[in-house]
Amino acid sequence: MSKITRRKFLAGSMAGGAAIAMAPTKKAFGANLEGFPDGMGVLVDMTRCVGCRSCEAACNKEQNLPEPNKSFDDFSVFDEIKHGEKRRPTEKAYTVVNRYEPEGSEPVYRKIQCNHCNEPACLTSCFVNAYTKTPEGAVIYNDKVCVGCRNCMIACPFSIPAYSYSSAINPIIKKCIFCYDTRLKNGQTPACVEACPQQVMVFGKRKELIKIAHDRIRRSPGKYVDQVYGEKEVGGTGWLYLSGVPFQQAGFNVSLPSEPIINNVKDFLAIVPMVLAIWPALFTGFHLLATKGKSHGHGDDHSHDGQEEH
């Protein structure tokens, strides 16, 4: 075990600062990148969902989640309201289905889980770098690194990451990982998608899903709202939604920008490394120049101080 000395720490932070100072050029290049070219996603067609909750049960089984509070065939959960809101993902359920009742329409069911953004805000907000966007399209996280700061919970525009409040010793973030470890890595369909009796969800390359989504809208005039939610929102998400009712009536946040969340702070963040890397050296230089050849002046000061003390 080597101890980190002050000298090492400073050297490290200088190197880090230099590395960050190089970053803006890289970021500028990545600004127009639309995620990984072969990233996978899921198209959710809400006009098909009947709210059977099979997907929730499948997720529970696949992810070895603890026993639910209520059976998965108990539909009273749709009436649950907590803190004025419908159900949201928790440490015990990475996906939940909610029911909405738009005026003049049949009830609409909306499954929520991590949308696996192209440029995830959770990832950029995480200061221990626990999150990873894999080339397969999943946004996964390393729970051994997570310190439980909950920055990602605030950063996520979809309010997805959940917190293991029940753990007193080591509370960490819990969320849908697109079945990465058990399925996605091997090119397999996620458990929730497979379990759905209505094929509400189609799994595949995000690029192809967008085509399928627009084809469905074109083929069935009047059936869908002419929008694929997630195609543009916050820089694009892996999970995409089709709806028969306006998205806000099904609980979607329709005020999200089409730019990734990171773009809001990119300009500011680009200045930070400059400040950190250049300012110390610059002002040290000024100081050295300003005090050059004034060594006896210090002596005077000291003597002056000394006189005051006496």
Binding site: S54, A57, N60, K61, E67, P68, N69, D74
Partner: peptide, 13 residues
């Protein structure tokens, strides 16, 4: 699969 019937969650756990 559905945690129902004989596999229904017991309130306490």
């Amino acid at each position: 699969f559905f945690h129902s019937g004989q596999f229904a969650p017991t309130g306490s756990t």
